[in-house]
Nucleic acid binder design. Structure first.
Length: 271
DNA sequence: CCAGCCCCCTGTCGGC
DNA sequence: TGCCGACAGGGGGCTG
């Protein structure tokens, strides 16, 4: 659920409270929350390091420390926030980094899918991930080249992080709706115009998602605890049975690669 | 290269 | 009211 816009919103919200703070101690509920290195190494290495900068790569939150990169992947239900203590109603804190000002970075994650990472280089956990869709050099030509010759459903390709970074189930459906492309079309059947439209649509829906500070469909919250507004602006996601906002036809929901997939059968034709 | 399936987890919701 | 199965979907892994 946290996709590129949600992660970007978290990153922006964490910079002010985190940059310049030094880690003084580490607490975690279970070792498994730490993906790399081992839990003991993680704690020993991160203590004493200061947050220098916070950025995003794909759906990873990337914190540049003095000697290492500290990464977080929120997966489905992860939340990050800085506070002296977690709110009484947050039963899901899995890891805390105590800071030099008395506050802590809290990693809360109901479903325990989320992971943290510590490595000298960000590529230790982001190698193989495709281009950032909002970068200036991600042109329509670059996108078309990555899709070229692929005999695979376009929805599956949009979700594949090695093809394009940061797109998840919500923004994939919204992109395909905006570009008026059926989710089951294979990439090798798309015309140049369709690929160009999809390129523009992906960038548009991600930028809109950032402008609305992310989609709080259920678990996602900004670091300040507030909800984003992006879910108020969906055209098809989670709207099955409701009228298409363009033509009035009922939005359909099917399954594509095990994911709920929403589209307008009139605006997005199969062939 | 690709489709399909399982697994990791837990909260929520609809049906009975 | 309580129980139970389905569902949510990011990512990794395995099989055919």
């Amino acid at each position: 659920m946290p996709e590129l816009p949600e992660v970007e919103t978290v990153v922006r919200g964490l910079r002010q409270p985190l940059v310049g703070r030094r880690v003084e101690h580490v607490w975690y509920e279970r070792e498994k929350v730490i993906a790399i290195p081992g839990a003991e190494d993680f704690a020993a290495r991160i203590v004493g390091q200061t947050f220098q900068a916070i950025t995003r790569r794909a759906k990873y939150i990337v914190c540049q420390m003095d000697h290492d990169v500290f990464g977080v992947h929120l997966r489905m239900t992860g939340r990050l926030y800085v506070a002296v203590e977690s709110p009484a109603d947050d039963r899901w804190v899995r890891l805390r980094l105590g800071l030099d000002n008395g506050e802590s970075l809290h990693f809360s994650d109901a479903r325990r899918f989320g992971r943290v990472y510590l490595a000298p280089d960000v590529t230790a956990f982001t190698q193989g991930i495709g281009p950032e869709p909002l970068d200036d050099d991600f042109t329509a030509e670059v996108f078309a080249e990555r899709l070229r010759g692929r005999h695979r459903q376009i929805k599956a390709l949009l979700l594949d992080q090695s093809i394009i970074a940061g797109v998840g189930n919500i923004y994939a459906d919204e992109s395909l709706f905006l570009a008026q492309i059926h989710p089951l079309r294979t990439a090798d059947t798309l015309t140049g115009d369709e690929m160009s439209r999809l390129h523009e649509a992906v960038r548009h829906v991600l930028n809109q998602g950032i402008d609305h500070e992310g989609a709080s469909v259920n678990w996602y919250r900004k670091p300040d605890g507030e909800r984003g507004d992006s879910q108020e602006h969906f055209n098809v996601y989670d709207r099955s049975g409701q009228p298409c906002l363009r033509c009035g036809t009922a939005v359909l929901k099917i399954r594509v690669t095990q994911r709920g997939t929403h589209f307008c059968p009139n605006c997005q034709r199969e062939k």
